[in-house]
């Protein structure tokens, strides 16, 4: 069976600085992988490179998404094929209403996949349902995307987008940071609802707490641009106790 995501020897730099140093990672359908690692290790960089953010130069390796060359695709194409990144720092877009944005994104993806577009009322209905599950005030949907949203509201909005777009691979970059205890539970429930045998997830986090809610199948340590250790969910607990010092030395 082809892996959902297969990263082999990925090297990437930005502004002449090498950040990813030969990274290997395989995610199969139905699996949840957690990635932990020190600040500046390259976790967000990995998520950006996967989603096709401009500015990164790939200097080595390859990435297959359902067997296809992911790095050759434009960001919108990757999204339509089912890749979703929940941003560590979601952007504010003044003048674009949240609901308009959601509808445009959903229908653009459907169009690209040759599916029929959904009418505005249909989209609204779905969005309202999901907003309710995620405890998002429906009034927020009328506001410009993320503008003036609190940190936690932005993260919940990312989760809403993910739930609406039903991707095949979800990459969550510190979706837990900035969430209060109740919101963390609500967001985690939202993520867990998306768990499915044909869907994979990469959960980037600094905190074991999130992994109590979203229980991973595999935990990786990313340090200095490489996966330096892979283990089961108990690895997260271990890291909580020992920190990253040993891995940083190893990577250096």
């Amino acid at each position: 069976m082809t892996a959902l995501l297969e990263i082999r020897g990925l090297k990437a730099e930005i502004d002449g600085r090498q950040i990813l140093n030969g990274l290997d990672l395989t995610v199969n359908k139905g699996e949840i992988h957690a990635i932990m690692g020190p600040n500046g290790a390259g976790k967000s960089t990995l998520s950006y490179v996967l989603s096709g953010k401009p500015g990164y130069e790939i200097t080595g390796g390859e990435v297959l998404f359902n067997g296809e060359d992911l790095l050759a695709m434009d960001p919108d194409e990757r999204a339509a094929k089912g890749l979703f990144l929940a941003f560590q720092y979601p952007l504010e877009i003044p003048g674009v209403a949240t609901l308009t944005f959601l509808r445009t994104a959903l229908n653009a993806q459907r169009r690209k996949r040759g599916e029929e577009e959904l009418s505005s009322p249909d989209v609204l209905k779905r969005v309202r349902e999901l907003a309710k599950q995620l405890n998002i005030d429906p009034e927020m949907l009328k506001r410009p995307l993320n503008v003036g949203f609190s940190g936690g509201e932005k993260k919940r909005n990312e989760t809403l987008q993910m739930a609406l777009l039903e991707p095949k691979l979800c990459v969550l970059d510190e979706t837990d940071s900035g969430l209060d205890i109740d919101a963390l539970r609500i967001v985690a429930d939202g993520v867990n609802r998306l768990r499915a045998s044909d869907r994979g997830m990469i959960v980037i986090t600094h905190y074991q707490r999130l992994l109590d809610y979203i229980v991973p199948d595999v935990v990786h340590v990313l340090s200095a641009g490489r996966i330096v250790k892979t283990g089961g969910k108990e690895l997260a607990l271990e890291l909580e106790a020992t920190g990253y010092a040993q891995y940083q030395n190893e990577a250096a």
Partner: peptide, 20 residues
Amino acid sequence: FYLMARGIPEREAEALLIQA
């Protein structure tokens, strides 16, 4: 990029930003 990462093609993403 944020818009494109959600599946919105480049021209459409530009159009949204121009509209805004």
